[in-house]
Design a protein around this nucleic acid. Structure first.
Length: 376
RNA sequence: GGGGGUGCGCCGGAGUUGGAGAGCCGGGGCAGACUGUAAAUCUGUUGCUUUGAGCUGAGUAGGUUCGAAUCCUACCACCCCCA
């Protein structure tokens, strides 16, 4: 259970590395598909392996706790067995739901009282319970319970929130050390840098996290609506402080261009709902640019969705057919585009890794960003 | 062949019993948004034009009236009944 730095880029802060986890190895930089409730929406586990080749996917503590609940997850002997996924898993702690369900929760020093978005019932999450639940889920990597503040955010609040996240980290760490793993494999716990878009707070938080000696350090609270430049500046700042010898995980990011920019700033791990959510809404990412497959102009285009895709579905099915599936609201449409987008994101980080190892990452990044951000 | 009924938006529905319609609801179409998933969702738009405004519009063509989607005549289309 460790992170190994394999190569540092010369012209940027990009790195190539390798995570060794209980269920396998993960080359970095890596993008992790999000599977909130025990499924990467619309995608078979088989396709995550064969068509997308993602080594690591996410689950969510808050959502899995509410449904199916820990009694069922434990009876299934953890999430790996329950969903039939034998590669590495990471669970988010529910910290993001502190942000996204802000209308339905109350934060105190002790923890967060949530009202379930499903039935309105009240539930209490603390750093200790978040760890306990994540022990029951059994992911290879588990996350600290944090508060993800909104943007914009008053500095005074951002500071108090950051300090609370730091105190909660200590409680998460203690709870983690005192609780054994439940399924015979080791888990890693990752702390999270907060601090909003305030450089001095980010610096303080990154310094705090840097001292914790974790194998993986996360950066949270970004990509919540702030300008891209702020996100990049905060990422650079955090990476300059977090230890080189640990993996750096930028939570919730991002677009393909965001990935490349943040890789060049020293990030090793990403997760984001964008490729899957946008896939369900008809947006298709390719090396040639972005396609809105619902647009009329694809109606009679019988060329493959993306002839260069790692996904066999994208090489086989035409744009006209996928557009038809979306027009008819057939489930197969979002299934094809979800596999496609994830395959593209994974190809993008594999290519980034190859160019870091080859030593020409900088030039490749610039060229790639200009082509992938075009609208087709 | 005779009798009755109904006709306006891309489609369906509501409404208009002579007094201001570019005009309600739903669907469809077209486009946009989406960043640790309350999202297979949400938003905008959907007669024409030279768009801070104007024009045309209630099956078609006439008529009555200060004023017609509404009343009258003819024709057309569709539906029902009789033969």
């Amino acid at each position: 259970m460790s992170f190994t730095l394999e190569k540092k880029d010369i012209g940027s802060d990009a790195r190539a590395g390798r995570l060794r986890l209980a269920h396998g190895e993960v080359p970095t930089p890596i993008f992790m598909p999000v599977g909130t409730v025990g499924t990467v929406k619309t995608v078979f586990q088989r396709d995550i392996e064969r068509e997308i080749d993602a080594p690591l996917i996410l689950g969510n503590t808050y959502h899995l706790y509410l449904r199916p609940g820990m009694e069922i997850i434990e009876a299934a002997k953890g999430l790996h067995d329950f969903i039939q996924w034998d590669r590495p898993l990471l669970t988010d702690s529910g910290g993001y739901q502190v942000y996204s369900l802000s209308q339905r929760r109350k934060i105190t020093e002790k923890g967060v009282e949530f009202q379930s978005h499903i039935d309105g019932s009240r539930h209490f999450f603390s750093p200790e319970s978040a760890i306990d639940i994540q022990r029951s889920i059994g992911a290879d990597i588990i996350m600290a319970f944090d508060e993800c503040p909104p943007y914009p955010c008053e500095k005074n609040y951002a500071k108090k929130s950051m300090e609370l996240t730091h105190r909660w980290w200590k409680r998460c760490q203690a709870a983690f050390e005192q609780s054994p793993a439940k399924y015979g494999h080791q888990q890693l716990l990752a702390p999270i840098v907060q601090g909003g878009t305030y450089p001095d707070l980010r610096r303080a938080s990154a310094e705090f996290v840097a001292q914790q000696g974790a194998e993986i350090n996360a950066i949270g609270g970004l990509s919540v609506g702030e300008p891209h430049e702020d996100m990049y500046d905060m990422t650079s700042l955090c990476c300059s402080i977090l230890p080189e010898t640990s993996a750096r995980y930028l939570m919730g990011v991002g677009t393909p261009a965001n990935l490349l920019e943040c890789i060049s700033r020293g990030i090793d791990m990403f997760d984001c709902v964008l490729p899957t959510r946008n896939a369900r809404h008809g947006m298709v990412y390719t090396y040639g640019g972005i396609i809105n497959i619902k647009n009329k102009k694809w109606e009679m285009d019988f060329s493959p969705l993306d002839e260069n895709s790692p996904s066999s579905y994208s090489r086989k099915f035409s744009k006209a057919y996928v557009r038809h599936l979306f027009s008819a609201r057939e489930y197969l449409g979002p299934q094809i585009t979800s596999v496609h987008n994830l395959a593209f994101f994974l190809q993008l980080v594999r290519d980034a890794r190859q160019h870091i190892l080859a030593g020409d990452f900088g030039a490749w990044k610039e060229e790639t960003i200009s082509s992938i951000t075009q609208r087709l």
